[in-house]
Design a protein around this nucleic acid. Structure first.
Lengths: 215, 215
DNA sequence: CTCTTACGCTACGACCCGTAGCGTAACTGG
DNA sequence: CCAGTTACGCTACGGGTCGTAGCGTAAGAG
């Protein structure tokens, strides 16, 4: 395998020759998302993306080695829309981010692409790293921020490195992230039911008070 | 589209003609799982499955319309291994089933196939129904059983249809199932970290006592 | 024994993949 | 202004997979 462009985001400034077309980049990623909505992952072809983007097929292969990496980049930017506005208390913060994430996953291009590349990543280490750095790790910031806010409000105990039975902060963040993201993904994609305000409220209650609090 | 065999499980008894070979059925499903381990979902081809199973490619298409449905059936049986032995208390029951589900998802044929068919199901209603009936709904029994046991032990309040703010039993079961299955799937496939006893214990603690209990 | 269905095999057109080669376009440094 | 370098669009290609059709044969039902 010849060394290929690792990613399309590096500007490669100061280099001689004709520069990459930023418009082509954008057109390709837009076309990828649009095609995902129409035909889904399985029938998505590089040729069709190129045609939609008004670009030669070879131009795609100069930037991405295969369909997987292209789709990861096409979808990753959508996740940066997520925010965590301060709604006053931990429960409201949780409900807010759950609804945002739910709305993002409700979009057809997101749901069909995310699970597909995750599936491919189980037999492709490079792809798994790309997903982790481009999507997952970037969104853990929401958990970190929400946790810090709750600790400042006194809703959660502060980090206690020496306490018996306490969890290291990093482990706790990873656990919480898996629970929140996993539950939303599972409800949306597997159970195929909506993440609406009522569900978000029930989920936040469960997360805060545990199973007993569900009533 | 000509009417095709809806599934391969119906024995179609009392029908004239040569019956379907049960050995072929088994050989195909085994070959599918084996091939998934070796080449993953993306490079899995009907031709290779047929060759591994010692069967003509046309025989596959007489039973399954496409790769998706074949893989759903090949993987579905694995989920029936899950059990819920009575370990005395709710926390231990949760940890037990979490570890079982984690071990199941750690198997390469499971992880690579489950997410792939879920991804395809976002643009294929029939496939989504097949997944729901063959996999998801069958496993909700574990949540129902564990909940009933905990209620009999007095660890959880009984179903209270009229109580203010209480959740209907069906909604609670769906919520709990999404949280448990989603968290395990997310940790295994997205975070790609193991579901080991320590994690299972932390997760069970979170589920029982809520975020505050994490310390 | 006949009817019906399943099986293995071969062949096929259609489609997509990923790459090579070409002429042209765009930008850099002397 | 002029090489040098890189990107682009286009065409063409071998290789692989898809899903189907057609055939002769195998195996139960009545």
């Amino acid at each position: 395998m010849v060394a290929r462009m690792p990613d399309s985001t590096s500007p490669r400034k100061g280099r001689p020759g004709r520069p990459r077309s930023a418009e082509a980049d954008r057109a390709i990623l837009d076309a990828t998302r649009a095609a995902l909505v129409d035909v889904g992952w399985g029938k998505l072809t590089m040729g069709e993306v190129a045609a939609r983007a008004g670009v030669a097929k070879t131009t795609l292969y100069r930037r991405w080695a295969n369909k997987n990496e292209l789709v990861v980049d096409a979808v990753a930017v959508l996740f940066d829309e997520l925010e965590l506005p301060d709604r006053g208390c931990l429960k409201a913060d949780i409900e807010g981010v759950v609804l945002q994430f739910g709305a993002l996953l409700a979009r057809p291009e997101t749901k069909t692409a995310l699970m597909a590349v995750v599936a491919e990543s189980t037999t492709d280490d490079a792809l798994r790293e790309r997903i982790r750095s481009a999507i997952v790790d970037r969104q853990k910031r929401l958990v970190v921020l929400g946790r810090e806010r709750a600790q400042q409000r006194g809703e959660l105990p502060p980090d206690s490195p020496g306490t018996e039975g306490a969890l290291a902060a990093g482990q706790a963040i990873g656990l919480i992230f898996d629970v929140i993201a996993g539950a939303i993904i599972h409800r949306t994609l597997v159970s195929s039911e909506p993440v609406d305000p009522a569900w978000a409220q029930n989920f936040a209650t469960l997360l805060l008070t545990g199973l007993v609090g569900l009533g």
